[in-house]
Design a protein around this nucleic acid. Structure first.
Lengths: 223, 223
DNA sequence: CGTTGTGAAATAATTCACAGCA
DNA sequence: TGCTGTGAATTATTTCACAACG
């Protein structure tokens, strides 16, 4: 009796890659590929094959030795593990350039994300429509969250407003926040917070570019 | 004779946090804080103090025992290490919702990033102005890169176009790419590639949210 | 004193290498 | 034969804990 266990302790690094595998598998399925090897999936996801096999081993054994993985079956299984059997409703706080861009993003649907509402504090923006969503007042935030069964929130406000928005979200019962504002938010331990900082990403690239031009020949050291 | 060494082997994890420290230090400086402890900086950056001290130790010793770090001096030093003594010119490829939002983003200046140009393949967008930048044809990409001394590029195109854009960027001599398109790009080893995938971030949050609601009481296990 | 800077210990993630199986 | 699944080895990162020092 094999138990289809919902595997308890999946390493964080693995969890962070599962969405990449899912995306890669969906692409492969679209192209009509029914079966793929760990090598194949690794290329499609942009990682190496050893890590693919190790990661998938945390979910249980779903491959066939000498053959590979059933693309659709594996995609379905990963979707189940990440809780993506039905779309996650998400509220976007902030209808500025970035918030609007996210609200208009067509790619969410295929990735199990559904924009439930867009809210903003600016009265001039309330009532306008971005990406097919009418912008509501931020005062309706708790209503939106409770009635919409929303459990994920995106903060796309200026940094100065981000902390109070986070506080309001937490007060309304949100436990998962994706923050685009370049500021370190203070939230309770029980709240899961992830950060996207575009400028920081560019600075990291800048560090390496800087080093490349400073020390052109370091191959010897790297052996 | 203390050598102001440009420290050779800074761990990747540390490099990824330097921009956060820089941001936090700039905020502290604005508020008139002259000196801060590792604890203080840790809170402002959203990490813990042990990691701050360990990270900073990789850059050399710039603190004063019993006192802390000079905010401005440390900020300047980190800026030097990440090569941010003068702004990095960046080209944004793709003037859709996201590309426009990035082009209009006001926060880049303070973080050492300067938008040098915005290009797009769509003739209808060429000539329009987004965030103060006239959108140029993607055919001018290599000119833009060579004349603007651009070394960083942001890909904000639909996934289907991303690989050919990446190829063009690499051909034009770009060695640092920040990719927003949800697809695994194939680039030479010498090219530094970072990925931002919003849907993937949400799926990671979804995984944890999913587990939380599936297993409400796991405190005992975590001891 | 109070806080840094850092070895040493603990933990986490990746890579290797190959037995085991379809 | 070819590819998975996985222990073992390696490497990276975080955390601890405290001596050193302004």
């Amino acid at each position: 009796m094999t138990i289809l266990r919902s595997p308890a302790g999946i390493p964080d690094a693995t969890v962070a890659r599962l969405p990449l595998y899912l995306r890669a598998l969906d692409e492969l399925a679209e192209r009509g590929t029914d079966v793929c090897s760990s090598e194949h999936l690794a290329t499609a996801a942009g990682v190496n094959s050893a890590i693919v096999r190790k990661d998938l081993s945390h979910l249980g054994s779903y491959g066939t030795r000498g053959v590979g993985y059933d693309v659709r079956f594996l995609a379905g299984h990963i979707a189940t593990v990440v809780g993506q059997t039905q779309p996650w409703p998400v509220v976007i706080v902030g209808a500025g350039h970035l918030g609007s861009a996210l609200a208009a993003y067509q790619g969410f649907g295929a990735r199990g994300v559904k924009v439930a509402a867009v809210v903003d504090a600016d009265p001039d923006l309330v009532g306008t429509v971005v990406g097919g969503h009418e912008v509501r007042s931020i005062d309706t935030l708790s209503d939106v969250i409770e009635h919409g069964e929303v459990s994920l929130a995106i903060i796309a406000t200026p940094p100065a407003a981000a902390q109070s928005v986070a506080d309001a979200l937490v007060a309304a019962g949100i436990t998962s926040i994706l923050n685009f504002a370049p500021t370190a938010l203070q939230v309770p331990d029980a709240v899961d917070l992830r950060q996207v900082d575009v400028a920081a990403e560019l600075q990291i690239l800048g560090y390496h570019a800087h080093r490349r031009q400073a020390e052109p020949a370091e191959e010897a050291v790297l052996s």
